[in-house]
């Protein structure tokens, strides 16, 4: 039975789609049968980030409405052994699907896949409710910046009231130079504020743009630090204990040693 994971953030532009594409690809590289669902109906993008935009025939709404079978809508990514994309509809809106339909869609995919990753749209309205409806667990993506952290907190609260109580956090686009100067909240600050488990930290990396220009997820190359961070995150999702990337920040040697051996495990004190 596969696991359904929704990748969400509240705020737009923090890297949900990039994160979904890269974690999914990394899981496929680990030999896991993986399907990526683009739940951002009307604003689909996972297809271009993955470089699969020219192969779309049917989409998620077609499957839900019974226009085609699931098998016809799933696009196989030929570069990998078992990676599929279920694209969003581009000409419909978020009300074309209901939470119950999304739930059924996820259930139908469980038998064929180990991981079902859902790329959630920004916002907290219908699209968000649809995207989280069928999920077993949630990954919240944020950036160490006030508006992204505030929205992440709101999302964590909303997830909790929808029985997704222990979301895991990805801190995306961390700039080590700014953290060093004290001009960007560091990993500890961010976890301290949000009070959730940390799944991983992705450094800000130009390669992300380069890879999406080409439609090749950054995890497929070996040179970039963001790619390495996403591969580590995928391994942690598989239950491996992988230390955080050593990112030369202001932390002391002792802090680094501590980070090497423990993934932060602070619990949110109030769930609403």
């Amino acid at each position: 039975m596969g696991e359904v994971i929704v990748i969400t953030s509240g705020k737009g532009g923090v890297g949900k789609t990039t994160t979904t594409a890269n974690i999914g690809t990394a899981l496929a590289l680990e030999g896991k049968r993986t399907v990526l669902i683009d739940a951002d109906i009307g604003l689909r993008n996972l297809d271009v980030v993955m470089g699969l935009e020219n192969r779309i025939v049917y989409d998620l709404v077609d499957v839900v409405e019974g226009v085609c079978r699931m098998k016809q809508a799933l696009i196989r990514d030929k570069r990998f052994n078992c990676l599929y994309l279920l694209p969003a509809a581009q000409t419909r809106d978020k009300n074309a699907v209901t939470p119950a339909q999304m739930q059924k869609l996820c259930e139908d995919l469980r038998d064929q896949f180990d991981f079902i990753l859902i790329d959630c749209p920004a916002g907290i309205e219908q699209g968000f409710k649809n995207a989280i409806a069928g999920a077993d667990k949630a990954v919240v993506v944020t950036m160490p910046e006030v508006s992204a952290v505030r929205d992440a907190d709101r999302i964590i609260g909303l997830l909790a009231s929808n029985e997704l109580t222990n979301p895991q956090l990805i801190i995306n686009r961390l700039r080590m130079d700014m953290v060093k100067r004290g001009d960007m909240m560091n990993i500890d600050d961010t976890i301290d504020i949000l009070g959730v488990d940390l799944l991983g930290v992705v450094p800000d990396d130009e390669e992300i743009i380069v890879s999406s220009n080409r439609g090749e997820p950054v995890v497929t190359g070996n040179s970039s630090s963001a790619g390495q961070a996403y591969r580590n995150i995928a391994k942690r999702l598989l239950g491996e204990k992988i230390p955080l990337l050593n990112m030369d920040t202001e932390e002391t040697f002792i802090d680094r040693l501590r980070n090497l051996f423990t993934v932060k495990n602070k619990k949110r004190t109030w769930k609403g």
Binding site: P144, V146, G182, M185, I193
Partner: peptide, 9 residues
């Protein structure tokens, strides 16, 4: 500025 951000948040 990161301390200001944290406190405000």
């Amino acid at each position: 500025s990161k301390d200001i951000a944290k406190e405000r948040l």
